[in-house]
Amino acid sequence: MARNPTMNDVAREAQVSLKTVSRHVNGATNIDPALAARISAAIVKLGYRRNLSAASLRPGRTSKTIGLVISDLANPYYSTLARAVESVADAAGYLVTIASSNEEGPRHDRLMDRLMEQRVDGVIVVPPRHPARDWSEVPPPIPPLVFLDRPAPFADADTVLADNAGGARAATLALSGAGARRIAYVGDSPDIHTMRERHAGYTTALTEAGIRADDSLTITSAHTREQAERAVGALLREDAADAVFTANNRSTIGALLAFQEAGRRLPLVGFDDFETSLLGNPPVSVVSQDIELMGRTAAESVLARLRGDTSAFATKVLPTRLILRGSERRPERG
């Protein structure tokens, strides 16, 4: 296999010095136009590409790459986050390397080590539900780091979160305000920070509405859409609840499928909007967090650190918005 062309090859082809080629490929603009044209033609002819991995090893040079470790790329929530991060990074001239931890602590640690071995300039991380290694055990140097969606115990990092508790409180109060008294909570494991916060908001709202919490109506095992569907189906068969708050989009979709299977629905508000939420009759009421804004904010935070921002590390909590579309109300009797 032929070797990749080098800057030396470009210099020989263009009949210029190696230093001039280096200045050209690194963006210098004060090169004689005739020389720049010859270098550009040589680059095209030879198929030369910069070796950014090697360049990043030299003092003062970077890989122009940001690592993004999320939980599950198959979840539309995380793919939207990734797209937002990528758009900001791309505009700043950075490539984003995306990987999924699948909520596994050891896998997350391997991904982090690999990204740092590849000399990424910064990292944005959604911490896994079961961390394996403490951040104090990560060998330095650690590049600029931003925790996204969930916090982690590491002082030298910025964090970007949504107001999970406030959004869940608003959703539950909307259901109680529409007359519900037995409001079920359906969500994923409380090991996940966002789920703990959303359940806390739910219980706060019950207290404010004068409703006694009922553990039998709290379901925290709905990791998948299918598990949520089975859980809500059981609530319907047992006539246990008169409304449902679903704590993420997969739980909401599972609840809707259970309603379809049973041929009847309960008042419902879900956390996180999703593309098909408007297709129901009525459309699904949701707590909407600006996922794109979260991704953009995380990317802007890590880029600011790369540009030299030395201000105190901070946690930014972005607001949520309750969108009532009718599903929070009891179905009208025919």
Rank of each mutant, 00 (worst) to 15 (best):
V21E: 02
E229N: 05
A178I: 14
Y202G: 03
R110N: 13
S301K: 06
S285A: 08
T29D: 10
R50I: 10
S176I: 14
A262W: 05
V126L: 00
P331V: 10
A234Q: 11
S87V: 05
A240R: 12
T62N: 08
F245M: 13
S79Q: 07
N30F: 14
R196E: 12
V269S: 03
A55G: 11
A165H: 02
R114V: 12
A170R: 09
D242Y: 13
A222W: 04
S311N: 11
A180N: 07
L145E: 02
L266R: 03
A314W: 04
Y185T: 10
L161F: 06
S221G: 11
R321G: 03
A132K: 08
L68P: 04
R305H: 08
A162G: 07
R212K: 15
A180F: 08
S311C: 10
A178S: 15
R61G: 06
E103Y: 03
P319S: 04
A255E: 01
R119P: 06
V284Y: 01
G122L: 08
S136G: 12
G326L: 11
Y48A: 06
V284F: 04
P128C: 06
M294H: 02
Q118E: 10
E229P: 02
V125L: 09
S136N: 14
G166I: 07
D191M: 07
D158M: 05
V269Q: 02
T252L: 08
R230C: 08
A155I: 10
V244T: 09
P139Q: 14
S216H: 14
N249T: 13
T207P: 10
I253E: 04
T65E: 03
D309K: 12
T80Y: 07
E261C: 01
S327V: 08
V21N: 01
I211W: 05
R114P: 05
G295C: 00
A42M: 04
S216G: 14
L145P: 02
A299H: 03
R3T: 13
V287N: 01
A89W: 00
T194I: 10
A213H: 15
M195S: 11
F147L: 05
V186E: 08
G334S: 14
A298W: 00
T246F: 06
G210M: 09
Q260Y: 06
A258T: 00
V96T: 12
A36D: 14
A34C: 09
A28S: 14
I66F: 07
K19H: 10
L217N: 06
D273A: 05
D158L: 05
D134H: 11
R182T: 12
